[in-house]
Design a protein around this nucleic acid. Structure first.
Length: 412
RNA sequence: CGGGGUGUGGUAUAACGGUAUUACGCACGAUUCGGGUUCGUGUAAUCCGGGUUCAAUUCCCGGCACCCCGACCA
């Protein structure tokens, strides 16, 4: 894409109403637009990052048999009354609205009940199980206080997956498979080395749920990690969990962390409350085992920013960057344009700064945008047949022959 | 939800109760052309509603919005 066509622009000044690094940088660089507290629009650059994160998650979910679908934001009251979660006392983040005839509706903060309700229409026999479905969905939660930029909003994008099983063994087995898939996801997102599978407060079925916690100063949780970094426990359940697994809690060190994923087993709770049954091999009705798996897509984006950005601006891992290469022309538009066309035709995602700006502006804005690689075609180096390439994470650039630029870019 | 704070051009900011400041941006014209180049001209603002006062961006009341701390957080 040519940068002259991009409607967003960078800003030298940080917004006065944002404290968090992620929101401040994303707004300055033109990735998001703040609509209100805790509610952000994703402009083309931010949209591309979200789509890249989703692509990675989608690939891993598909790899373990997940079927993608999309549920609705408008939800029926009676769906939630079946499990006692329509009440504002039970769930304090509800947005509710009404049809013109007065029918009460809920705006989806979760889809657990909604999935069960839909699935009862499709599951009748043990032969229909197991089933694993997932979606990328906008969740609406009426948080008392939004904070930390895109990391805790009132409207956010989440990947939620639900697996339904005939037996506990089958659920347990699948649950473990999801843990492995999640590990791959965080690795691919570039935050895997600092993301832990942790014990956290559980649901009705199990004593603990599992959270995926990523070490991050902007996070809201405190994680206790052991010395060789193989085990971590959420502070919320520190005493219980350390007792359960027989670990001396004084050997664990606390770190701030952000919950980037949460998985848990409902067991037959929803099935029982909502009276959803399948028929077993003996013709008898049986409850369905349910487990649920979430990843905050927008929160993951915020965590990536928080962890990787430097004093010059954003730094994206190649896997999620909106473009792989930032091509700058410094008074060498003809040659740069030619390279841009060639790379684009080759299917390489390039942001080409074709604007008539000073070199300094192009460089500093390029740093702020944080694309993984920068290729500079300058009038000066053009004369010696050279171009300059630099990784965003490295301080110094190197020169390569102009003739090798296209091959170099293809090899990245 | 409890507590605290802040609302001024598009953005960031200044102004004892007395002519709304400056920078960035934007437009035009020059200048420059490898780290937010330089200069000129122009453009554009006091959150909303009351009150006090000769006079309110400034003080008071109410509302709304935003931020922070806490609480909350499958």
């Amino acid at each position: 894409m040519k940068q002259s066509q991009l409607f967003t622009k960078t800003s030298k000044t940080a917004p006065s109403d944002e404290v968090s690094k992620n929101a401040s940088l994303l707004i300055r660089a033109g990735y998001v637009y703040k609509v209100m507290a805790g509610v952000y629009a994703y402009t083309p650059l931010g949209f591309r990052v979200l789509e890249n994160i989703k692509r990675i998650v989608r690939e891993e979910m598909n790899a373990i048999g997940g079927q993608e679908l999309i549920m609705t934001n408008l939800q029926r009251k009676d769906t939630w009354e079946m499990t006692g979660r329509w009440s504002d006392e039970a769930v304090d983040v509800w947005f509710k609205t009404k049809l013109q005839d007065g029918t009460e509706l809920g705006l989806a903060w979760s889809h657990e009940e909604a999935i069960m309700e839909m699935m009862q229409r499709f599951i009748s026999s043990y032969k229909d199980l197991p089933i694993s479905v997932y979606q990328f969905q906008t969740k609406l939660r009426n948080e008392l206080r939004a904070k930390s930029g895109i990391m805790r909003g009132r409207e956010f994008v989440m990947k939620d997956m639900y697996s339904l099983h005939a037996t506990q063994e089958d659920m347990d087995q699948y649950y473990d498979k999801v843990i492995e898939a999640y590990k791959k996801i965080y690795q691919r997102l570039g935050i895997g080395d600092e993301t832990y599978v942790t014990f956290a407060s559980g649901g009705a079925f199990t004593k603990f749920s599992h959270e995926f916690q990523t070490l991050c100063d902007a996070g809201e949780d405190v994680l206790y990690v052991n010395a060789d970094k193989t085990m971590a426990v959420n502070e919320e359940v520190l005493d219980d969990a350390t007792q359960e697994i027989g670990v001396d809690k004084s050997t664990l060190l606390p770190f701030k962390s952000a919950e980037t994923g949460n998985i848990f087993k409902f067991g037959t709770e929803k099935s029982d409350k909502m009276n959803v049954r399948y028929t077993d091999v003996n013709g008898k009705p049986q409850p369905i085992y349910l487990a649920s798996y979430g990843i905050g897509i927008t929160r993951a984006m915020g965590v990536i920013v928080e962890k990787l950005a430097d004093d010059k601006g954003l730094v994206w891992p190649q896997s999620v960057a909106p473009f792989r290469i930032h091509l700058l022309s410094l008074g060498a538009d003809d040659k740069a344009e030619e390279i841009y066309e060639t790379l684009t035709l080759a299917g390489i995602e390039v942001l080409y700064d074709d604007r008539d700006l000073s070199a300094g502006e192009k460089f500093s804005q390029s740093d702020l945008l944080g694309l993984p690689y920068r290729v500079v075609i300058g009038k000066r180096s053009l004369e010696s047949g050279k171009a300059e390439v630099k990784k965003r994470t490295e301080a110094t650039a190197k020169e390569i022959s102009l003739a090798d630029v296209v091959e170099y870019c293809k090899s990245l």
